[in-house]
Design a protein around this nucleic acid. Sequence first.
RNA 1: GCGCCCUUAGCUCAGUUGGAUAGAGCAACAGCCUUCUAAGCUGUGGGUCAAUGGUUCGAAUCCAUUAGGGCGCGCCA
Length: 595
Amino acid sequence: MSDCLFQRYRAHVLDVLRRIVPDISEDLLARVELTPTRDPAHGDMATNAALIAAKPARRKPADIAADIATSLLGVEGIASAEAAGPGFVNITLNHSVLQDVIPAVLKAGESFGDSQIGKGTKVNVEYVSCNPTGPIHVGHCRGAVVGDALANLLDKAGYDVTKEFYINDAGNQVAALAWATYWRYLQAIGSTMDAEAFNAITPNGLQYQGEYLIPIGQALAEAHGTSLAEDGAKPAPAEKWFTLVKDFAVARMMDGIREDLLTLGVKHDVFTSEAKVLADGVTDRAIKMLEAKGLLYEGVLEPPKGKLPDDWEARPQTLFRSTEFGDDVDRPLRKSDGTNTYFANDIGYHLDKIERGEQVLVDVLGADHGGYVSRMKAAVKALTDGKVALEILLCQIVHIVRDGQPVRMSKRAGTFVTLSDLLDEVGKDAVRFTMLTRKSDAQMEFDLDAVVAQTRDNPVFYVQYAHARCRSVLRAAEEMLGAEAVTSAALETVSLKALIADAEIALLRRIASWPRTIEGAAAAREPHRIAFYLGDLAADFHALWNRGRDETTLRFLQENDREGTLARVALVAATAMAIRSGLAVMGVEPVEEMR
RNA sequence: GCGCCCUUAGCUCAGUUGGAUAGAGCAACAGCCUUCUAAGCUGUGGGUCAAUGGUUCGAAUCCAUUAGGGCGCGCCA
């Protein structure tokens, strides 16, 4: 039996349609949908089959709909089917079909909703990938959560997923980190050089002046004493310390980043170093491949329109013909001094992923990388002749708000809000859930007060509260019926005939649509849909709970009705399981009770 | 100037890839607690889906143009 009701009955609809319109094409059949109805008055599910088939059959949609409806009446489990609106067929299922969802959920446990649409396709999801030059800050947080949830979602949908972090440890930024760390090291061994004095001797100037490098400098001093400096804590020539300090600082920064990510519940499978990709020669190989395809040339770019940089002058560079793959202008692979651009290294890195056998590459990036999308897609297309897809998810900016006022972030002054600050304040689960309550391509306000509020309008609270209520009912049921009567295994076999109230059916219908929610969200790469599904599921459960306030027969536990009580307890257990299954995708822990 | 993203109720946002009368929470209004289920619940009002044109059985959704907001735009990563 298929896990998904909608797939199962869609197959019946297709059978019927083939009989009524024998010569219908497979293309058209693929467009036939069976979807949950928005309005319960329209039954449990509706199909557009007649609307699709009307044109090739040269009949009115309503007539075909009527024929389909009549034939569907013979299908097991269908209580009624009728033509409606412009040519829909509304289907109402027997209560027993919806009730049978419960044992399926209880048997599957948290794997309820697992799908095979991914067919084991190897997908690499790269996310966070911040520079290892400072603590991870809130700007990276959304990408971290979205990437992680997307990876979980694709995994649940049957893809073979790798979670990956790219360490940008090869460019000017880490050189600047090394210099700044060295400054803190000199201070740690007694130098009194201030920022201004050190800035004067630093190539490109002293950049990272935040206090977070002070302990790193002290650690260097502990490990190496004064050996990295000249006598009297004076700066030594860079050759003497640069590589050592750089590697030391990057390693410490990555430790901190990894730790912060772990606190956020994010754990990557693979960390790939830009420096290592370079050292392995993958980047050179990628450039040679592009060259062999005739896609590189020496040229001079037009100056950018509008804002002309002050120091602009025409210089020849090695350019990649990205315009042949839909980009606006060709892009430089080498700077005028002959060294690689970041783009060139990134092409090498993507080739590395491709050579590892990844079939779909997903990059989760911040909105400030928007200008980067088309060139990187062009590069992957060029390298693989279009065989590997690169998908890029841009996460728009998050504005942190407190008391209705924006919280300022200034990286330069070192006073930016770090991820660990945010986690300390509102907790991992609230951060993760809230970051998934918007589609990622829309800007978002993150209200520090609202996300911890224990009120109806806080979706984190609302969903957790539903789960806690479920658990509370199950605990009470154990008390009343004995623990062995309410185990999952025991509840799989109870009679569910008592579950016929509207609110109970509505909840069952919602649970039944979890598998197709997973498939839709995975196909669209939209993890936020899981948050909204859980909100709806919680609303249905709370509605049922509240119905019991007025109508006592709808309360879950009834002393004088063992069969009905067991049926409702099974429903509650299935609801809790569906919530847990959804929270697992989001990386949020379900709570047992609210405090 | 160009490219990408966004614009849906007073506010914050959904809208299941083109489906039926566009939804939810907050706010507003009207009710509901000596709690076996009120950190809450029930009901009501609230819309030219930024604008215009197009595509078709059917458009908030796709295309074109326009307006407003965000991000980006050769040797930063």
